[in-house]
């Protein structure tokens, strides 16, 4: 009765829906491995949506004479032609016992008929959406280490995220490498700092915040990181201008006014006003004026007026920081 051993836990038809590639790959791999756990010789057919001919799926999914198991994986299922979609939906309503079908769909409108069809037919749906929040990525890192039988300190997870960036594939690779390289049960900040240094993603806003808060060294460091990871100089200039502009606007407003009341008048959200009020510490009108002039010069220089955009930016940041205490 080996047949009755079943197909592991995998449903006969699985729809992996979402645009996070790594998670989609993992979902496919888990289905394949659960089938293999029950039947080590199961055959895996890995197909690409655009290349599936009509009839091909029917051939692959029809029961085998010898009762062999097989897994059919269709990647980029949004590219399946209309005929194949009809064929697949029809199959999903009456799936064969010997075959496990996995459809990978990136979400979106294309190929919606397939998604709706197989969902209606009762396919198991695995959703793999892109992680957008930093907190979700931290959870992802924690789960990675848990999967490897280790744990990671919260500060270390943050440091790792800063250093590697938000690409999950890179994060996963960094996690497994770290787990391999270190001995302790809990990976600490020191271990992360030993292998990873710097920041993968610095936006112009980080640079601007450091500059208006008068942190020269940090601002210059962030600027270099930003430039070396390909942030356009123009964006950094506009972030600097934006930062100084909010300071200037808030500096002209009455000090005791409520942020929510000011929001409408200044055309800024309340949190930004609060932020600007905090940053205004140490700024005088003359200094602000000088700093904004410097930014205008920088914009001119990064748009072809100067020869070296990086120099123009560094020079501007220095001027901004030095203008800070010039009341």
């Amino acid at each position: 009765m080996w047949h009755a051993a079943g197909m592991g836990n995998a449903a006969p038809v699985t729809l992996v829906s979402g645009d996070e590639e790594l998670l989609a790959d993992r979902a496919v791999a888990s289905v394949v491995s659960s089938v293999r756990a029950a039947e080590p010789t199961a055959e895996v057919h890995d197909l690409v949506g655009a290349k599936v001919e009509p009839g091909e799926l029917t051939r692959l999914m029809s029961p085998s004479l010898f009762g062999d198991r097989s897994v059919v994986v269709v990647r980029n299922a949004q590219d399946l032609t209309k005929d194949v979609v009809t064929e697949t939906v029809k199959y999903a309503a009456h799936p064969s016992d010997d075959v496990t079908l996995v459809l990978v769909h990136p979400g979106g409108v294309k190929g919606k008929a397939l998604v709706d069809g197989v969902k209606k037919a009762g396919a198991q749906v695995v959703t793999v959406a892109k992680l957008t929040k930093a907190g979700e990525r931290i959870d992802f890192i924690r789960n990675e280490f848990r999967g490897l039988g280790r744990t990671i300190a919260p500060a270390a997870a943050h440091a790792l995220l800063d250093a590697v960036g938000s690409d999950l594939r890179e994060l996963a690779a960094a996690c497994s490498q770290l787990a391999f390289d270190t001995q302790e049960k809990t990976v600490g900040e020191a271990a992360v700092a030993r292998y990873h240094r710097g920041r993968a993603e610095v936006s112009g806003f980080n640079v601007a915040d450091m500059a208006v808060e008068g942190k020269l060294a940090e601002a210059l460091e962030q600027l270099r990181w930003a430039l070396s990871t390909g942030v356009a100089p123009v964006l950094i200039v506009s972030a600097l201008a934006g930062g100084l502009r909010s300071l200037a606007k808030v500096s002209g407003a009455p000090r005791n006014a409520n942020e929510n009341q000011l929001a409408g008048r200044l055309g800024m959200p309340p949190w930004k006003i609060r932020n600007a009020r905090r940053q205004l510490n140490g700024w005088g009108p003359e200094g602000l004026s000088r700093a904004i002039q410097a930014v205008a010069t920088a914009d001119e220089q990064v748009k072809g007026g100067g020869t070296d955009a990086a120099y123009a930016l560094e020079n501007t940041i220095q001027t901004i920081v030095h203008s800070r205490n010039g009341r």
């Binding site: 904004i292 002039q293 930014v295 205008a296």
Partner: peptide, 16 residues
């Protein structure tokens, strides 16, 4: 004329 962001250029002007 050199394509500087108008808002930045005019801010520098009013301050001057």
């Amino acid at each position: 004329a050199a394509n500087v962001n108008p808002q930045i250029a005019v801010e520098a002007l009013t301050l001057a």
